[in-house]
Design a protein around this nucleic acid. Structure first.
Lengths: 212, 212
DNA sequence: CGAGAACCATTTGTATACAATACCGTCATA
DNA sequence: TATGACGGTATTGTATACAAATGGTTCTCG
């Protein structure tokens, strides 16, 4: 994917993440093309990617809409994510090297930093948190697993809801990451598996309790 | 996706499945367009779909090649598949209705039929087997799970290798499906989970022992 | 003889025009 | 009033021309 298509992808994606394009609203190729100052061709490519990543859905007649996640959808997503990320964590606990561990620590420090202030920087938290989880998946060295998870992790609904998280939930998250790192240091795959399972489950509960 | 793009998709896919286009060989849009008697536009759409479904891979410079599966790739695929299908089986065991059960029985009968003859109809086995697993995933009512599994199940490498399976392996498979149906009748999610886990693991071993 | 640069051929990316299809409001009719 | 057919409009699908980029080959120079 090259310049114009990448640009269109990023632009449309942020349109959705920011909430400017609300869930369920239709997206037409022409309109997006004008918005991005490109032709319909790269827009079509971008929409295909966004479709795979579940940002948008296609109707039977090929019209594209901003994805609208039901409670069941979110539930399903967290369930799959828990299963797959726990597996990733178990694999990673057996495969990481010193540099990986260092990267994880640095990343968790960044998360902590974002949470510390009286007014937590939740966007910063979400970005660093995403990185943390991504690093673990990277360490697991399982490209298909990584590809699958990539389509599940950064969901607009979840992200928007997370904006309402309280300090305790954020701090709790940091703590769980710490335990995960401990499990890594012990090279204990089962421990890592369990911690990650609980971590994702609690994230789901946090989501549920903050959802509108 | 409409006529031309669908046609291109089907044609390219069968080109790969039949082995006419061998793993690692390059595919160019123009050449495929001529083969399918369409323009490059629908070919591009088809290639995107085939990329998501792991039939083809893209190099850094966006060139497309028939996917070439290493032993690790196959291993990873079976691992993920085992995890996800076991989950699907557990869910399905709690959700199926009478019609679902009937469909599963019919499907397993078809598998049995394909295996019975002195010269087993392995292509027939593979098709019916795919249907059996697909029905279970359907019953689980988890669209993202279904979408993920769809990208993992029908792999050319596996299919070609399965062509060398012996009678015992095929018969064993029928038997395991029977036990799965029993677990369903008992509405025992854990049992179904365990049977499916073992079923996929043994399928992997069968693959490994027949792989060139 | 080897390394590197310049060139040409091949391939993918993008824009655009036109065709096909789907959606939606209108109108006729029961 | 409900329903169904019709037609205009909006939207997506396809083909094609051209631009950009990539890869390989050859030629030159050290």
């Amino acid at each position: 994917m090259s310049r114009a298509a990448d640009h269109a992808y990023a632009e449309i994606r942020s349109l959705i993440l920011s909430g400017e394009a609300s869930p369920g609203s239709p997206l037409t190729e022409e309109q997006l093309a004008q918005l991005c100052s490109v032709s319909r061709t790269p827009v079509r490519d971008a929409l295909r990617r966004l479709e795979v990543e579940l940002y948008v859905v296609r109707s039977d007649s090929q019209r594209v809409f901003v994805a609208d996640w039901s409670r069941e959808d979110v539930d399903e997503m967290f369930t799959l994510r828990g299963m797959l990320e726990a597996h990733a964590a178990a694999r990673a606990a057996k495969r990481f090297d010193a540099a990986d561990l260092h990267a994880l620590r640095r990343c968790n420090a960044a998360i902590e930093e974002a949470v510390r202030h009286p007014q937590p920087d939740i966007a910063g938290f979400l970005d660093a948190n995403r990185d943390f989880h991504r690093i673990i998946v990277e360490i697991a060295r399982s490209p298909r697993l990584a590809a699958t998870l990539a389509t599940l992790v950064e969901q607009p609904v979840v992200r928007r809801t997370a904006m309402r998280y309280g300090r305790e939930q954020l701090a709790q998250s940091v703590q769980e990451h710490r335990e995960l790192i401990q499990a890594f240091e012990a090279r204990d795959a089962d421990w890592a598996h369990g911690v990650m399972t609980g971590h994702i489950r609690r994230a789901f509960h946090a989501f549920s309790s903050h959802a509108a």
